[in-house]
């Protein structure tokens, strides 16, 4: 197929322009800002500050730790959900309905949803009230304003991304492959482990990357559900931009977060590739 050079320019140009305008230029601005000093000079002192201060390493560690937990939980909940929708819900109308239910929260502001968790997880919230009335606990559990609370709130927000990604891959797995496995003597569980799951790995990888990166950069949910007691990178960045008005330092934190996230993802993909080859 031959492509008219002009259409090639258009086809490539539009996304490239989009990328430049909405990603490279803003990020370039941020990157440049991060080297700016209050006196108008240039220096890498901000990076030095982050690199040598354990506090910022701690915040980075907490950010990734929370994002990892969120990814893990979303995977453990989202995969079976996607599997059930794909294979066990036969009625197409019901399936569509379930998809809508899963996607609907995405149309709600994350602020509203985070405040919803404040009500649910609080000392007098539904979760504690229920556990107390069942006499499973005699004192309200401290869930809110802990790492666990942040993870729960974020996992809820991220769930649709995992479910949709995994379901779209599962849908494309030819069901006759499963039948072939059963036919060749595999118990349903074995058929899942040997055939369905390995074939759905692209969805798992894509879904976990999406959820992980969104979790790393999430601000609203952790800032509300942490109650200021746990500080992730996005909160520190927001603090620099909105409260202390130290834009260069905020920019430095943002660049540090982006670079370390990219490094982690690159490492993850490298491990997967090695594993796939080996």
């Amino acid at each position: 197929m031959r492509i008219n050079p002009w259409s090639a320019v258009l086809l490539l140009g539009v996304p490239v322009a989009f990328l430049i305008i909405f990603f490279i230029v803003p990020f370039g601005t941020v990157a440049v800002t991060s080297f700016r000093m209050p006196d108008g000079g240039w220096s890498a002192a901000n990076y030095e500050k982050i690199a040598t201060d354990a506090y910022y390493w701690g915040a980075l560690y907490l950010t990734f730790k929370i994002a990892l937990w969120v990814t893990l939980i979303v995977l453990l909940v989202g995969y079976p959900l996607a599997y059930t929708i794909t294979y066990n819900v036969r009625n197409p109308l019901l399936r569509r309905f379930i998809y809508i239910v899963i996607v609907t929260p995405l149309f709600t502001s994350s602020i509203v949803r985070a405040f919803g968790w404040l009500v649910l997880l609080g000392r007098k919230g539904m979760v504690n009230e229920t556990l107390m009335s069942l006499e499973l606990i005699d004192k309200p559990l401290q869930i809110l304003f802990t790492e666990g609370g942040i993870v729960i709130g974020m996992a809820y927000i991220m769930l649709p991304f995992m479910v949709l990604t995994v379901a779209s891959i599962l849908q494309n797995i030819n069901t006759s492959l499963l039948e072939a496995a059963r036919d060749l003597g595999a118990h349903p569980v074995v058929a899942f482990l040997k055939v369905t799951f390995p074939l759905s790995l692209p969805g798992v990888i894509a879904g976990s990357l999406i959820v992980f990166t969104l979790s790393v950069s999430a601000y609203v949910t952790p800032s509300i559900l942490s109650g200021g007691k746990k500080t992730v990178m996005s909160m520190l960045i927001y603090q620099q931009y909105a409260a202390t008005l130290n834009f260069p330092f905020g920019a430095t934190l943002a660049v540090a977060l982006l670079v370390s996230t990219l490094l982690l993802i690159a490492g993850y993909l490298l491990v997967i590739e090695r594993h796939a080859k080996g």
Binding site: A180, D183, L184, G185
Partner: peptide, 14 residues
């Protein structure tokens, strides 16, 4: 299916 003494050659090979 997995306990039946039969095997299948599928239409699309699977």
């Amino acid at each position: 299916p997995h306990e039946r003494p039969v095997n299948t050659v599928f239409q699309n090979y699977a």
